[in-house]
Simulated scan of single mutants.
Amino acid sequence: MSLATGVGSMPGDDQAAYDEAVKVVLGELTDLAHLPEVPGRGAVASMTGRALAVVTDLGADLQPAGWRLTGTDGSGVDHRRARSLLAQDLDGLEEQAQGFGAAFKLQVAGPWTLAATVEKPRGDKVLADVGARRELAQALAEGVRGHVADVRRRLPGVERLVVQVDEPALPAVLGGKVPTASGFHRHRTVDLPEASEALGWVLAAVAEAGAEPWVHSCAAGTPLGLLRGAGAQGLSVDLAMTSAADHDALAETLEAGGTVALGVVPSVDPSTRPTDAGVTESVLRWLDMVGLDPAEVGERLVVTPSCGLAGASPGWARAALHLLSQAAGHLTR
């Protein structure tokens, strides 16, 4: 049987929305639930804020231009708020997920997306400094180990734990398309070996903590071969954004025993809602195109929304996850 899960984010702008998101995720995604993210609550709940809440041994604060590292000089009030909010969210998850024994997924921004969005202590992106981006990647890897251990303690019935490393900025980093602070120039490209090494530290930390490392990006041009080479056991993509080369890489991942998560349902409210039969058919067509039998890939094929659901209405977010769950059940019948 194939599985269904969410990419991560859910709609809403307050704590009640987070509590409802947990309830929806646990109710609809009974085979592979995930820790919801509700970025509408502000910068401390954003993808970057959540990842900085996980990072160890580095402080940060929130400036008008966004998040900035403070080195080892201590965390600013917003960084402390981000850590407190993550702990509060995990408390809420633990309370609602009592007895949950299916697979479970966490999400964290990857080292290159962080390097492209977080500033150095004296300004400009971490991406501009080889030493700073190395330090941030290693601090993230160490923080992920502790995060996985904390979640395992809170969800003792979960045997399969997945950590999805989100890297939407990776294509821009590799393509030299990340703007400098002035906006008039672009940061230099990062060499592929360095990109793979930093990502590999984080993915290895996930695996060493006893979880399954995936990488997600719904951006076009994501180098899937690099992700696999860095240690990703699962690849999560928006099917509509994939190329012919991507199809080959995804098929190779499944054939090698890895997991592929295909984004096949709109992440915002569509003008015409798809049906579970239509979603099932689109996945079966893709499997036929790459020459794979749905019965053989089984649970290693996962269906998801095309990207996060933060921009959706609460009604569509719930409907999308329900639709995916139904389609997953149809795929191997």
Rank of each mutant, 00 (worst) to 15 (best):
Q98F: 00
R122F: 15
A132K: 03
Q96Y: 11
P111L: 06
R122P: 14
K105D: 08
E95K: 13
A141E: 07
A115L: 04
A139H: 06
V130I: 13
Q107I: 05
V126W: 03
V130R: 12
L90K: 00
L85V: 07
G99E: 10
L85Y: 05
L85P: 01
R145V: 11
T117D: 12
P111M: 09
L85E: 00
A137D: 02
R133I: 03
G131F: 15
A87D: 10
G110E: 00
A132M: 09
L86Y: 05
L114P: 03
A97R: 00
E119D: 14
D124T: 07
Q96C: 11
F104Y: 11
Q138M: 14
R134S: 15
L90F: 08
H147P: 06
A103Q: 05
A87K: 03
F104D: 03
R134K: 12
G101M: 13
D89I: 01
G123Q: 03
R122E: 15
G123V: 08
D129Y: 08
K105R: 14
V108F: 06
G101Y: 09
V144C: 04
G143T: 05
P121V: 05
F100C: 10
K105T: 08
R83W: 10
A109R: 00
Q138H: 14
D124R: 05
D129S: 14
D129W: 00
Q107D: 10
G110T: 02
H147A: 05
G131Y: 14
A87G: 12
E119N: 11
K105G: 00
R145G: 11
L114F: 08
L114G: 02
G143V: 04
K120C: 14
D89N: 14
A109L: 13
V130K: 13
A97Y: 01
Q88H: 14
E119H: 06
L85T: 03
L90D: 01
W112T: 02
L90G: 00
V108E: 01
L93E: 02
F104E: 03
R133T: 01
G92T: 11
E135W: 11
P111V: 02
F104C: 08
A137C: 08
D124I: 07
E142L: 12
D124C: 03
A141S: 03
V108A: 04
K105N: 10
V108N: 06
G99P: 09
A128Q: 11
P121A: 09
P121F: 02
G146I: 04
Q138P: 11
S84Q: 14
G99K: 11
A102H: 06
L140I: 07
R134Y: 12
D124F: 02
G146Y: 08
L86W: 05
E119I: 05
T117Y: 10
R122A: 15
A87L: 11
R145N: 10
V118A: 05
G123N: 04
A128H: 11
A137K: 02
S84E: 15
L85I: 06
P111T: 09
R145S: 12
A116E: 04
L86P: 02
E135V: 10
Q98Y: 10
G92A: 15
A141G: 01
G146V: 09
L114D: 00
L93T: 01
L85F: 01
G131W: 13
A115N: 04
K105M: 10
A109W: 02
F100V: 09
E95L: 14
A139P: 04
V126I: 09
G92K: 02
